[in-house]
Simulated assay, not measured.
Amino acid sequence: MEIEGDALTDVIKRLRRAEGQIRGIIAMLEAGRDCADVVTQLAAVSKALDRAGFKIIATGLRQCVTAEQDGKEPSVDVAQLEKLFLSLA
């Protein structure tokens, strides 16, 4: 499965945002910030990573549906996508 176009751009944007949040969390820990603030930021980065993962899975499902509509064999294994989806849930 390949991620193309707008989906790829969106996933990369989400991952870069998560990367920045992780750097921020590290700085918070090094500065001795309150645990509640750190956990709040950890929850935010976790959500950003989940959204990136779900976007990738949604792209794969879209490729399957498009292939089936065109009468082609899907290049993505639906069972594998389901397993990936459940790993994020």
Results as ranks from 00 to 15, higher is better:
residue 60 G to I: 03
residue 39 V to Y: 00
residue 87 S to R: 15
residue 56 I to Y: 01
residue 60 G to E: 06
residue 20 G to V: 11
residue 68 E to L: 12
residue 59 T to H: 13
residue 73 E to S: 14
residue 61 L to F: 09
residue 14 R to M: 02
residue 28 M to Q: 06
residue 19 E to C: 05
residue 68 E to Y: 10
residue 39 V to L: 09
residue 88 L to G: 08
residue 62 R to E: 13
residue 73 E to Q: 14
residue 84 L to R: 02
residue 64 C to N: 09
residue 62 R to P: 09
residue 37 D to N: 09
residue 76 V to Q: 15
residue 59 T to K: 11
residue 10 D to G: 13
residue 2 E to M: 08
residue 48 A to F: 01
residue 70 D to G: 08
residue 29 L to G: 12
residue 44 A to D: 07
residue 38 V to H: 05
residue 1 M to E: 10
residue 70 D to L: 13
residue 81 L to A: 12
residue 59 T to Y: 06
residue 26 I to C: 05
residue 6 D to C: 14
residue 24 G to D: 01
residue 6 D to G: 14
residue 23 R to L: 11
residue 80 Q to P: 07
residue 67 A to N: 09
residue 64 C to K: 02
residue 14 R to D: 02
residue 5 G to T: 03
residue 74 P to D: 03
residue 58 A to T: 11
residue 45 V to E: 02
residue 27 A to G: 09
residue 32 G to E: 02
residue 67 A to Y: 07
residue 52 A to W: 01
residue 81 L to Q: 09
residue 30 E to C: 04
residue 60 G to V: 05
residue 28 M to T: 04
residue 26 I to E: 00
residue 79 A to P: 14
residue 84 L to C: 13
residue 62 R to T: 08
residue 65 V to Q: 07
residue 38 V to T: 06
residue 55 K to Y: 00
residue 85 F to T: 12
residue 4 E to R: 04
residue 22 I to M: 08
residue 21 Q to L: 02
residue 79 A to E: 15
residue 73 E to F: 01
residue 19 E to S: 13
residue 73 E to C: 10
residue 85 F to G: 13
residue 72 K to W: 07
residue 5 G to Y: 04
residue 41 Q to P: 15
residue 84 L to W: 07
residue 49 L to C: 11
residue 23 R to M: 12
residue 22 I to V: 15
residue 51 R to E: 12
residue 22 I to T: 04
residue 28 M to S: 02
residue 12 I to A: 09
residue 59 T to S: 15
residue 27 A to F: 02
residue 11 V to A: 06
residue 88 L to P: 01
residue 79 A to H: 13
residue 69 Q to M: 10
residue 63 Q to W: 01
residue 34 D to M: 02
residue 9 T to M: 12
residue 44 A to P: 12
residue 67 A to Q: 10
residue 20 G to M: 07
residue 26 I to W: 00
residue 31 A to I: 04
residue 89 A to T: 14
residue 72 K to T: 10
residue 89 A to P: 09
residue 18 A to K: 03
